[in-house]
Amino acid sequence: MLRFIVRRLLQLVLVIFALSVLLFAWLKSLPGGTVSAMLGERATPESREALTKELGLDQPIPVQYWSFLKRAVQGDFGVSNGVQPGTPALDLLLERFPATIELSISALLVAVLLALPLGYLAARRRGGILDNVAIVGSLVGVAVPVFFLAFLLKYWFAIELGWMPVSGRQEVGNATRVTGFFVLDGLLTREWDASLDALKHLVLPAIALASIPFAMIFRITRASVLDVLDEDFVRTARSKGLTSRVIRGRHIMRNALLPVITAIGLQTGLLLGGAILTETVFNFPGIGNALSEGFTKRDYPVLQVIILAAAGVYVLVNLVVDILYAVVDPRVRTR
């Protein structure tokens, strides 16, 4: 098990390295090169030359990559020139990333906590009312664009009904920052109102972001439970007179979870796409928001650091999924 984890961590480093090469190549291939990208098309030749020198762009490509890598390892990804001009890209990432992680975890919790029990019940009462309602619900969840759903939620529950805040992460202005996860910070510092306020800001974006993962995880759970229900070992469990609770948990769900874990991992990896849209609609200051802003403002240092970080998280999530899988399925462990 330990060797398995170490091997996967080495893979993580490798993936990040490969990604840095790609990112570097991407920056090189920008129209007009990095300098135009940073200074705009109308910069004077003198300032262009100065920046070219400063960035070492007059050096051979491998040397440039090496210095890029050296700076990156030291946490120097350049300075934002669009999203928050003047702020180092890494600082911007560290400030914004917790927001997106908080939002993503909330969305995943909503999706998983709804999808697992509903998937189980729908399978057990296959063809029943609940089954049909949930299937239609999951179809809607996939079919309605996240952007549109986010907008509807904001319009009804925030603007019309006023139940939830319209935008942002927190209204309490003087909340103490500890981890950057506002809900957690409030709990740690016992500033309950700050925590509750942050939670309220999360509700609507989390629901919007949860729609697709919910639909996918629900469907996989339902199909997987249906498969397991037909298994001989479920009949064996019944023949032993076990209670429904034990049969459900230990015999049905523990087996049905295997494909579900894979689905959850996959959906987690895809969350960033939805987060860009959701964060934009709710003006939620996370990396999704920064990413879309970075694209329109051509803020390459910011784009670069966010993409690297997102890729790292993606690989990390996959690692966690693989470990979870091995924990649940002994056949993977001993292979």
């Binding site: 001989d232 070992f233 064996t236 015999h251 523990r254 295997l258 649940v328 002994p330």
Partner: peptide, 9 residues
């Protein structure tokens, strides 16, 4: 084989 739960000792 199929009558035993594969993920429980």
């Amino acid at each position: 084989l199929s009558s035993l739960n594969p993920v429980v000792p």
